[in-house]
Amino acid sequence: MTALLEIRGLTIDIARDEGPARVVDGIDLTVMAGESLGIVGESGCGKSLTMLSLVGLLPNRIRATAGSAMFGGKDLLKMTPGALRRVRGSEIGFIFQDPMTSLNPVIRIGDQIAEALIYQKGMTKPQAAIRAVELLALVGIPAPEDRAQAWPHELSGGMRQRVMIAMGLAGHPKLLIADEPTTALDVTIQAQIVDLVRDLKTRLNMSVVWITHDLALIAGLADRIAVLYAGTVVEDAPVAEIFDRPTHPYTRALLDSLPTLAGEAMSRLPSITGTPPEPGRRPPGCPFAPRCPLAQPACSDAVPKLAPVPGSDPRHRVACPIVIERAVA
């Protein structure tokens, strides 16, 4: 497998009056061709910003200040806005969190999909209209010809998210980034959307990056999972390794806080004490140290680097010298 996207040392800062605040601190991530990567982390850990920075969609005052992101031989972070615009949609597709507000309320569904095809791929209007109906059929919308004529408010949340996926796929991208696409949906609909994306990924031979805070949800979707904490990758491993041998204290705590069917009835789920650091108030050294059950004084000396975990899958890497020592011992 070849790497489709290689992010190295990505750093993102928010410009504030009292000085910049770091929200993403030297992230390394690789997405292989045809692979699906799950990015897991709490709200505000920088998982969405990391992906938005790739295609130049960061909000005002937030900037990628260091690092590189090689995609198809070019560094996305060094591209001009015009060149990035052409990457968006046609090479990297996006699906967003809230399908209820992510569609323009004054344009019909079919026209909205066709719009992307006309301006991005230079199709004629009739060609784009036909392709839009095909895309609606592809994402499993019944009676696609009729639905193409519908207004966004006439569709349910699940249907709208399917339309968003159709729009994300319109340009036939090599990489589809799904930013918590099921958070706003019912549980049954969530499962349908996950199945749909997994199916489309194989059929269209794309890579998928699925951003979520729901570990259980991507267990059945991702090939590999990267766990983010306070703007750094703390553990990066194949999906089975994460669930069978969670190594980083944060990953373990995350998994412990998931309810299981085997668990004791009526017992309280464990939660992680404390809160993640605010941007600009990062502790020195390991950002998780203040909440970590294994923390030692040395943890605050240096930010730990990702390193392979001895005795497990070579792709399993963790940013915690303490657990690595234990694994060796």
């Binding site: 990457v87 949609g89 967003f96 507000t101 992510s102 569609l103 301006y119 991005q120």
Partner: peptide, 14 residues
């Protein structure tokens, strides 16, 4: 700043 404007940007519209 509404989500559908961000979505339109993500589609690469001018």
């Amino acid at each position: 700043n509404r989500p559908y404007v961000t979505a339109a940007r993500a589609l690469g519209l001018t």
